[in-house]
């Protein structure tokens, strides 16, 4: 999506979280992900996942997007999760012929599934609908080096350009009868595609660089910022802190 489309999407999703300073969302996301990653008790983890799920619902984003994300995550972790029960030693819970799923392995798998999904829900709820330009600005105001943020902002802008470029090229390949398969022709075609896009991007980079210099660029651009830290942020910050303390407390003390 273009910078404009991403900004429009962020603005139309709205919801109570949109009123927060982007810095609060970034800090809260990091704090909650770190908290959930340190939990070990399954019941506490379940509470954390439920809370993160509620936050995702409140964020006002379409549930289909969430489902898509979580499904991708599960496919990703399948190798890890399906193997753990059978490779970890312990009392067998389920026997399939010569192999047995150990109780320890199953519990470990459950622990990972809950942790990974909880963290993914937090990132979805707090950051997925955040305009990437605001994310960059928030990071700059939180102390991330200016040059890195500047590069990030330009990448957001040109990422959309080159996604469109690649889409256009692959479409023109398809209408000319290109059907990808595992063969030399496919690899050569994709190699040419990557090479072509690289050539165009280098030319584009030169033009952008010259345009920036013409406008007096000397290593610094204003990054700007959106949002102000207000009462809503204070309340949200306390709520996040309280939730994190409660989860860690329950995990360690109960």
């Amino acid at each position: 999506m273009s910078v404009h489309a991403l900004a429009v999407r962020a603005a139309t999703i709205g919801g109570p979280l949109a009123r927060l300073d982007p810095r609060s969302r970034v800090l809260a996301a990091v704090a909650l992900v770190v908290t959930i990653a340190t939990l070990h008790r399954l019941d506490v983890l379940l509470c954390a996942v439920a809370g993160a799920g509620a936050l995702a619902l409140v964020s006002g984003q379409p549930l289909r997007a969430l489902g898509h994300r979580l499904l991708h995550l599960e496919g990703f972790m399948a190798a890890l999760l399906l193997l753990l029960p059978f490779t970890m030693p312990g009392a067998p819970l389920l026997t399939l012929g010569p192999i047995a799923a150990s109780e320890a392995g199953v519990l470990r798998s459950l622990d990972i599934v809950l942790t990974v999904n909880g963290c993914a829900l937090v990132v979805f709820a707090l950051l997925a609908a955040l305009d990437p330009v605001h994310l960059g600005q928030a990071c700059a105001r939180l102390g991330v080096p200016q040059r890195l943020v500047q590069t990030f902002l330009l990448t957001v802008r040109y990422g959309a350009v080159f996604r469109a470029e690649i889409r256009r090229l692959t479409e023109s390949m398809r209408v000319r009868g290109f059907a990808p398969g595992t063969n030399r022709h496919t690899f050569r075609t994709y190699g040419n595609l990557a090479g072509m896009v690289l050539v165009r991007s280098l030319e584009r980079a030169e033009r952008v660089d010259e345009a920036m210099r013409c406008r007096g660029y000397s290593g610094r651009l204003p990054i700007g910022h959106a949002g102000r830290f207000g009462r809503a942020d204070l309340l949200f910050g306390f709520a996040v802190l309280a939730a994190a303390c409660a989860l860690v407390g329950a995990d360690r003390l109960l």
Binding site: L153, Y158, I166, Y190, V197, S201, E206
Partner: peptide, 20 residues
């Protein structure tokens, strides 16, 4: 900066290509 950002954008976009 412009060159790095634009090449980062290309590699970000290229990761969307799915090769069988």
């Amino acid at each position: 900066i412009a060159r790095t950002a634009i090449l980062a954008a290309v590699f970000f976009a290229a990761s969307l290509i799915v090769v069988p």
